[in-house]
Design a protein around this nucleic acid. Sequence first.
DNA 1: ATGGATCGGTACGGTATCAGACACAATAGG
DNA 2: CCTATTGTGTCTGATACCGTACCGATCCAT
Lengths: 238, 238
Amino acid sequence: MGEIRQDIIRNNLLRLMSADSFARLGETLEWVELPRSFELSKPNEACPYAYFPEAGIASIVARSPEGQQTEIGVIGRDGMTPASLVLDAGHDPYSIFMQVQGEAYRIPCETLQALIHEDRDLQGLLARYAQALAVQSAYTALSNAVHHIDERLARWILMCHDRTDGNEISLTHEFLSIMLAVRRPSVTTALHMLEGKKLIYSERGVIIVRDRAALEAFAHDVYGECEKEYERLIGTRP
Amino acid sequence: MGEIRQDIIRNNLLRLMSADSFARLGETLEWVELPRSFELSKPNEACPYAYFPEAGIASIVARSPEGQQTEIGVIGRDGMTPASLVLDAGHDPYSIFMQVQGEAYRIPCETLQALIHEDRDLQGLLARYAQALAVQSAYTALSNAVHHIDERLARWILMCHDRTDGNEISLTHEFLSIMLAVRRPSVTTALHMLEGKKLIYSERGVIIVRDRAALEAFAHDVYGECEKEYERLIGTRP
DNA sequence: ATGGATCGGTACGGTATCAGACACAATAGG
DNA sequence: CCTATTGTGTCTGATACCGTACCGATCCAT
């Protein structure tokens, strides 16, 4: 393609890398649409492409042998997938798929890997992103252990809101219940609770953030740590 | 020091790195004892030394603003600390401290960082370890979300057993309850349950693994995934 | 040996969440 | 327009786990 202008890109990693790094990547970057449920990476398989989302939200999900699953990380235009690429891992045990439809620039994993090996700055940036993502999963572990469903839901809404334009997030209770590893009716009642506190509106298939500040206040113990860490490691958010 | 023989080292990373890499490290490695509760790394602070444990077990603990905390990873002679060193992160938001007393080789972080920059093989090995640790925290998140206390306890005992000589693990219920982020009496009853199934013995201050295979069977849905991933990424366990 | 500290066992009531089922509402497709 | 499908609200037990409290057992230091 080779004609992409770095300054109008919305993906934070693509925008923050050096112009040189971007120039090398740019030749191979390819724009693609990512429909809901599109699988960016399969568990324990090398994936052909790395994706730098421009819009939409992807979930990283871990599964147990018996099929229990939960989300351990969220990726939007703040990041890339698979983060393990820079860690020399080949592949990882997660399933990564689109949860809110969007678009991305993609590049063959092999190409990116080769570029990383020759470009210390790029390697550093992506390594720091891998760390940011690891921290996200660590705080997910903490909050799964100690926080109540409504707080975890609030955190999740905030994390999605960070990665979206506007205040609407379109997804179903069913989907959410899988992400949080709770029953579907528990999501319904937790949403009602947040709605009762006037933090969100909830309609069929859509959650609308109504009062972001109050939502953050409600979730103060469960949201914020890994976001701070992202800013320290990568720089300002999109 | 400079006289340490690589082939009698018990730390897996030190043993598996190339002889060249080890030679460079070896000049600066220093042997230290690590008493229980010794803090290897403080939250959000650069730590002076990297540690490669020879024995004993360290815990990585994440804390919320209100002070809730839980363990998100375990490090023994399978690894090193801080893993974020290879990710160019400077420091990380966790607290890392010894839970079962032991010993380690240590090296100033700056020195190790410089060596990593000149040694692609070493960088790769430590990056893969960072990935293994991230996977561990991801599966901790999963198991915090979906598994019962007795299963999580079994997982924890197995992970410690992997990193210890013999079958005895000495620690208190109190300590364990913090690691698992549950009440102390819940640990007591969960231990009784495992003891009732003849999987362990439990005495004051000590847990003794009695039937490792049965313990693994009991924990089959909660233990094993990240261990497989470690073996794939790093190689055989110690 | 003795007193104090630590550690472990147990009990009681309370509640967040689960499992499963069912009915209703909204959308989509023919 | 009607029907099938999908999404949401609600109910009824059951239960795993919590908060708190208390007491006995074991260890340690003097």
